[in-house]
Simulated scan of single mutants.
Amino acid sequence: MNTFKSHFVFTKKQRNGIFLWLTIIIAVQCFSFFNDFSSEEIPVNHKQLALFEKEMDSLRTVEIENRKPKIYPFNPNFITDYKGYTLGMTSVEINRLLQFRKQNKWVNSVKQFQQVTKVSDSLLNKISPFFKFPEWVTNPKPKTYTKYTTKSDSDTPKTFQQKIDLNTATASQLQKVRGIGEAYSNRIVKYRDKQNGFIADVQLQEVYGLKPEVITRITNEFTVKTPKAIDKVSVNKATRDQLVNIPYIDYEVAHQIMEQRVLRDGFQSIEELTKVKGFPVKKIEIIKLYLTLN
């Protein structure tokens, strides 16, 4: 009981402190009651506020544009699934392009791109300025051979006397044939000089890059009139070392030729060599230049 009572017994110093604390509380309450602390209306410059909001909108727009994926010039033939998705194409449109490319076909214009993919005009107008086609598509070089000759000049065969000797023809003369430019004419002359002259017209097949139709046009204008002299080898008597000196015949083929020669009791024609195992059949016309039956 005395303990409970001790909680309500204060010293003089404590009572003065309590009295002071109550006074302060009452004073603060009175001050709050008699004074209005409501916020005063702050004047707003609506013109400046509008300018500020406009500037913030511009900065926000710039930030949005900066976050968008940037599009750089590209060849539309190589659009991948991801690239097409970033451009805004649907999966169906992308697949149409991929299927078209699987056929080893190429898109060479904006119009053809839309025909293949069937994209909308709005999307096409958005992405087509970034299309970058190869130089040979956008700026094709004019065919220069037309200024040298006409079709009748090289497609109509001439007589043997009218033709120019292929072993003495110059590069500039060869360029008069449709389909022969500076590179091909120099390549023919270089091959001829390396072989110390042509043996026959068929050796034009050995010049890299010449197509059959171009070779035909060349032989309509040129032919070998002074063939290089060679010592032909008898296919029925040649040794292995003699056979391997012939173009396109290696030791294995030479061995097979000699075995077949024994089994056949000699070859009756050069064409029978095509039955020999491993023989380069496609080069028979070249090989025949170096062989004889006897």
Rank of each mutant, 00 (worst) to 15 (best):
S6F: 02
K12N: 06
K13G: 04
W21H: 01
A27C: 03
S32H: 10
F37C: 01
F37G: 10
H46I: 10
L51D: 15
E53R: 07
K54G: 08
E55N: 14
S58V: 10
L59E: 10
T61F: 07
E63M: 13
I64R: 14
I64S: 08
R67E: 14
R67N: 11
K68G: 03
K68M: 12
I71W: 05
F78I: 15
T80Y: 06
T80G: 10
L87H: 12
L87F: 14
I94T: 06
I94S: 01
Q103D: 04
S109W: 06
K111N: 12
Q115R: 07
Q115N: 08
K118P: 00
V119Q: 05
S154W: 15
Q162H: 13
K163Q: 12
I164Y: 04
T170V: 02
G179K: 09
A183P: 01
Y184P: 08
N186W: 07
V189A: 09
Y191R: 14
D193C: 02
Q195V: 12
V202Q: 14
V202A: 11
L210M: 15
K211G: 09
E213Y: 15
F222R: 13
F222A: 06
V224Y: 15
K225V: 12
K228P: 01
I230A: 01
I230P: 00
V235I: 12
Q242M: 05
Q242H: 05
V244Q: 01
E252M: 02
A254I: 00
Q256D: 05
E259C: 01
D265F: 01
Q268S: 14
I270R: 00
E271N: 15
F279D: 00
V281C: 09
E285T: 11
T292Q: 04
L293H: 04
L293W: 00
